[in-house]
Design a protein around this nucleic acid. Structure first.
Length: 513
RNA sequence: CGCGGGGUGGAGCAGUCGGUAGCUCGUCGGGCUCAUAACCCGAAGGUCGCAAGUUCAAGUCUUGCCUCCGCAACCA
C-alpha cells in the first residue's frame, strides 16, 4: 500500500490570560477548514492547536486570584477546549506548554543550541518598572517616559540572561525568504519581514530570572526559558518523541498565525530551526484581523466579541460560514452582528436552506418522496450538470490554493445556479403532464444529486450542515465522504426514499428600525 | 526622513500579467407559485481619495499630496 500524502497545519497556541474572543475563533476556524479539506482530498492530516501557558503575566494573574499558575491556566484552558469542541474544531492534538512532553523537548532544544555555542550567557539591560515587575521598551513608555501600565518611574536594570545568537542567522534566513516566495504569505507581510531583517537582527534574550512560571534552563535552574523560545517549539513537540510521525509530518505545511506574530514565526522560529539543523516550515500564513465597528478588538475598547455567545445564538456552522466567506484571508475584515445575520438569511436560509427544502418538497409532492432514476438528458440538464462539475473543479483548485473565501463563493454561485435550474425546468408544470414524467424524474434526480455534491463541498466549512443535508437526503457515511465522490455527476443512488424536508437555517427576523 | 496597509456605485467588499469597472446586500420594475414573504429575470446608480507623469491604453505602474488605520522585538 502506498503511503498517503501528509499535511500538517497549526494555529498559534493561545495565551490564557483571558477568555478567547472571536478573533481566535477566526484563526482556528480557518485552520480547521483547511485541515478538513485536506482530509477530504485524501491527505493524512495532522492539525495542532493549543495553549501557551507560561510567563510572568500568567503568574501574576494567578497570584491575584490566589491560585497557583497551573490551577489558573487549567481553568482557562478548559474553556478553550470547550470552545473548540462547540465550534467543531477537528484538531488531532492539543498542546499545552505546561505539559511535561513539551518541557522535555524545549530543554532538549535549549541544550543542543547551547552546546553548539549559539546560546550564551550575557546580561539583559532593560527599562524596568519595579512596581509592575515588568520590562518595557523605549517605545512602549507613556508620554512622560514612565511605565505604560502604572505610570510610575522606570529604571534601567540589568539581569543575567541567556541569549540566542539570532544575529548569526540573519543572512541565512534572508536568503531563504528571498529564494522561497511562498514561505511568507501574503506578500505584504513578506516584504515587511525582508525589510525588518535588513535592519539587522539582534540576539534574542531567551531566559529570565525575575519570575519562575516557566521551563527551567537546564543546568541553571534559576533561569526560566522565555516566551517565544518556549512557545514556538510547541509545533514540534507532538512529533518529536515519535520518529515515524516526525518523519511524516515535519516540516509543517502551514503555520497559520495572526499578522502581528508573523515575525516570530518567519524569523525567530526559522533561525532556531537552523541552529538545530532541522528543516524549516513550508509556509507561514499571516491572516488579518477582525475589525469590530471600525475598531480593532480590544478589552480596553470594550468591543470584544465572545464566540460562545454567538454559537449559542446562531450555531457553530453559521459563524464558521461567516468567518470563512466574508473575510478575504490575509486581510482585515469587518465583523458585525448585522453582517452576520445578513449572511445567514441571504446565503444560508434563502439560498441553500430553501434550495434543499423546495427540492425535497417537490420530490415528496410529485414522486411520493422517491428519487427516481434519471434516463437521458436535455440541453438544460446538460448545462446544469456541466456547471456542477466545473464548480467542483474550481472549488478544488481554490481550496488547494488556500483561497477559502473564493472557493466558497463558487459553491454559492452553483447554489444559485441550482435555484435557477428549478425555474428553468419548472417541475410543477412537468408534474401536471404525464408525458413529461421522465423529464421530471431527471430534474428531481439532478437536484438531489447537486445537493449531495454541495453537502460534500461545504463539509470543510460547515461539517454539521453537510451532515444534515446528507441525512435529509437519506444518505449514509457522510464522514467517510471524499472529494472523489463528487468528481462525477450521478453517483447518487436512485429509486430510494428521501427524508422529510426540515429547515436547515431558519430566517432570523430583525425588527426594522 | 522608522515600517506597513487601506481610501472603488447608498452600505460592505473583489479586482492576478496595465486592455470595455465586477460581486453581495439594499432600491426600483417584472416573472413564478415547488419553497423558509423565499426563488428567477431586468434596471437605475461609480470623474476607482487628490494632482501630475509614463503609455496607443492606468483602479492597476512612477512621483508628490490629503486622509484613515495598524506595527514598532510578550495583544488572534
Amino acid at each position: 500500500m502506498s503511503e498517503k500524502k501528509s499535511f500538517y497545519i497549526t494555529t498559534p497556541i493561545y495565551y490564557p490570560s483571558a477568555k478567547l474572543h472571536i478573533g481566535h475563533a477566526y484563526c482556528t476556524t480557518i485552520a480547521d477548514a483547511i485541515a478538513r479539506f485536506k482530509r477530504l482530498a485524501g491527505y493524512d492530516v495532522f492539525f495542532l492547536t493549543g495553549s501557551d501557558e507560561h510567563g510572568q503575566k500568567i503568574q501574576r494573574t494567578a497570584e491575584k486570584q490566589n491560585v497557583t499558575p497551573i490551577e489558573y491556566v487549567d481553568k482557562i484552558v478548559a474553556g478553550f477546549q470547550e470552545l473548540w469542541q462547540r465550534l467543531n474544531i477537528s484538531n488531532d492534538d492539543f498542546i499545552r506548554t505546561s505539559e511535561e512532553r513539551h518541557q522535555k523537548v524545549v530543554q532538549e532544544f535549549f541544550r543542543r543550541i547551547r552546546d553548539k555555542g549559539d546560546i550564551y550567557k550575557g546580561e539583559y539591560t532593560g527599562l524596568y518598572c519595579t512596581h509592575c515587575e515588568s520590562y518595557w521598551t523605549e517605545l512602549q513608555l507613556d508620554e512622560n517616559k514612565c511605565c505604560p501600565d502604572c505610570h510610575r518611574a522606570i529604571e534601567k536594570v540589568s539581569e543575567e540572561a541567556y541569549f540566542f545568537k539570532m544575529s548569526k542567522y540573519g543572512d541565512k534566513i534572508l536568503k531563504y525568504i528571498e529564494e522561497n516566495p511562498k514561505f511568507i504569505v501574503p506578500t505584504s507581510r513578506r516584504n515587511e519581514m525582508i525589510k525588518f531583517i535588513k535592519q539587522g537582527l539582534e540576539d534574542l534574550c531567551v531566559s529570565r530570572t525575575s519570575f519562575d512560571w516557566g521551563i527551567p534552563v537546564p543546568e541553571d535552574e534559576k533561569h526560566v526559558i522565555y516566551v517565544w523560545f518556549d512557545a514556538v517549539i510547541n509545533y514540534i513537540t507532538p512529533l518529536f518523541n515519535d520518529p515515524e510521525r516526525f518523519k511524516k509530518f515535519w516540516p509543517a505545511d502551514i503555520h497559520l498565525v495572526g499578522k502581528e506574530i508573523v515575525r516570530f514565526h518567519s524569523i525567530i522560529w526559522p533561525c532556531m530551526l537552523m541552529a538545530l539543523d532541522l528543516p524549516l516550515p513550508k509556509q507561514i500564513y499571516g491572516h488579518g484581523w477582525l475589525i469590530v465597528e471600525g475598531d480593532k478588538m480590544s478589552k480596553s475598547k470594550g468591543n470584544v466579541v465572545d464566540p460562545m455567545h454567538l454559537i449559542d445564538e446562531f450555531g457553530a456552522d453559521a459563524i464558521r460560514y461567516f468567518l470563512l466567506r466574508e473575510i478575504t484571508l490575509g486581510q482585515d475584515g469587518g465583523f458585525s452582528r448585522d453582517a452576520l445575520i445578513n449572511r445567514i438569511n441571504a446565503d444560508l436560509a434563502n439560498d441553500l436552506g430553501n434550495l434543499l427544502h423546495r427540492s425535497l418538497n417537490m420530490i415528496k409532492k410529485f414522486q411520493g418522496g422517491i428519487v427516481l432514476k434519471s434516463v437521458g438528458e436535455n440541453e438544460i440538464d446538460k448545462s446544469f450538470k456541466n456547471d456542477a462539475m466545473n464548480t467542483v473543479f474550481e472549488y478544488k483548485n481554490l481550496m488547494e490554493n488556500v483561497q477559502l473565501s473564493d472557493a466558497i463563493k463558487k459553491v454559492w454561485t452553483f447554489i444559485s445556479r441550482a435555484n435557477k435550474y428549478i425555474d428553468e425546468t419548472m417541475p410543477w408544470k412537468l408534474a401536471k403532464d404525464e408525458s413529461q414524467k421522465q423529464i421530471l424524474s431527471n430534474t428531481l434526480y439532478n437536484l438531489a444529486e447537486s445537493l449531495r455534491i454541495i453537502s460534500i463541498l461545504i463539509s470543510p466549512l460547515m461539517p454539521k450542515t453537510g451532515q444534515k443535508i446528507f441525512e435529509q437526503l437519506n444518505l449514509e457515511n457522510f464522514e467517510k465522504s471524499r472529494l472523489e465522490d463528487v468528481l462525477t455527476f450521478g453517483k447518487l443512488p436512485s429509486d430510494y426514499k428521501v427524508n422529510k424536508a426540515e429547515q436547515l437555517f431558519p430566517r432570523i427576523e430583525v425588527e426594522k428600525q
